[in-house]
């Protein structure tokens, strides 16, 4: 009952903040449209294997092609959810609101689950809306629409990514105050976009950049999402496993950080 009440409160706080609609729903859809237009402007050149790519052209399909872009934007959207989670936690901590709750019968797990559940629900809604927008754009652009079965099957497979970004939000929200937390989280969003291969094909880039991307969770999260939506469930196992590992570690870290900070607040 306590978890439900706290989760409901967090959902209401999120849904009544107009910025959450702009960033969590509006921004991913706008990025889908803009990047599809950008993709349409890139000259498509079919390059035979082993032939160098001519200057000013690109190999098709680019990362902006709707079937690659939609799952990547889905993960990008989750990073914005991370920002809102971080802002919620840091704002609660900065006000006396959490102090009131600390004096109530609420327990440590009530807080974590109470923050996690509403953001997970919003995440699923965000994914479905992004998928639907991607499908409509594909249809409008005369491309093949998404396979509905793959779309449905990919939903549970995105749980590790959801957990990953919400955990990051909780960690930043606990460690930083409400002034610093949004800035720090925005840096993480930029890093997720650059190191996740959302805006560029890091596999083609290779080298040190790919090596760095491989060491972080974002690239694996995006890769797993792309392969899941493409129906390559065998191929996605490795990136999914790596993403799940990161998600689990970060979730445990978020619980540890929250509990530790709560205790230090009550010293």
């Amino acid at each position: 009952m306590r978890v439900r009440a706290f989760a409901l409160r967090n959902i209401k706080e999120l849904l009544r903040d107009p910025l959450s609609y702009i960033f969590c729903l509006g921004f991913p859809i706008i990025m889908l449209i803009v990047m599809t237009i950008v993709n349409g402007s890139i000259p498509e050149t079919v390059v035979p294997e082993g032939v160098p790519i001519p200057e000013g052209t690109s190999m098709a399909p680019t990362v902006f092609q709707i079937h690659k872009l939609t799952p990547a934007i889905t993960v990008f959207g989750l990073s914005f959810l991370s920002l809102f989670c971080c802002m919620r936690v840091s704002s609660d901590r900065s006000s006396a609101f959490l102090m009131r709750l600390y004096a109530s019968p609420m327990k440590g797990t009530d807080y974590i689950v109470g923050y996690l559940l509403p953001f997970a629900l919003i995440a699923f809604s965000q994914i479905i809306i992004t998928y639907t927008a991607g499908d409509i754009i594909a249809l409008a652009a005369g491309k093949n629409t998404f396979n509905v079965l793959y779309m449905l099957l990919s939903l549970p497979l995105l749980i590790p990514s959801i957990l990953l970004f919400i955990s990051l939000g909780i960690i930043f929200g606990v460690l930083f105050n409400d002034k610093a937390a949004p800035g720090v989280c925005s840096t993480m969003i930029t890093a997720a976009a650059l190191l996740g291969g959302i805006w560029m094909d890091v596999d083609q880039m290779g080298g040190v950049w790919l090596a760095i991307c491989n060491k972080l969770p974002f690239y694996h999260s995006v890769k797993a999402a792309r392969l899941a939506l493409a129906g390559d469930f065998g191929g996605m196992l490795l990136p999914l496993a790596i993403c799940s590992g990161f998600a689990l570690v970060l979730f445990v870290l978020s619980v540890f950080t929250f509990v530790r900070k709560t205790k230090s607040d009550q010293r």
Binding site: F6, R9, K12, E13, R100, S104
Partner: peptide
Amino acid sequence: PQETAVAGNLTVRENLDFIAKIY
């Protein structure tokens, strides 16, 4: 508490119901 501790985006009624439920 010393500082006003209310959930800003919740109505007065929702704030009260929320506290009642967590107790």
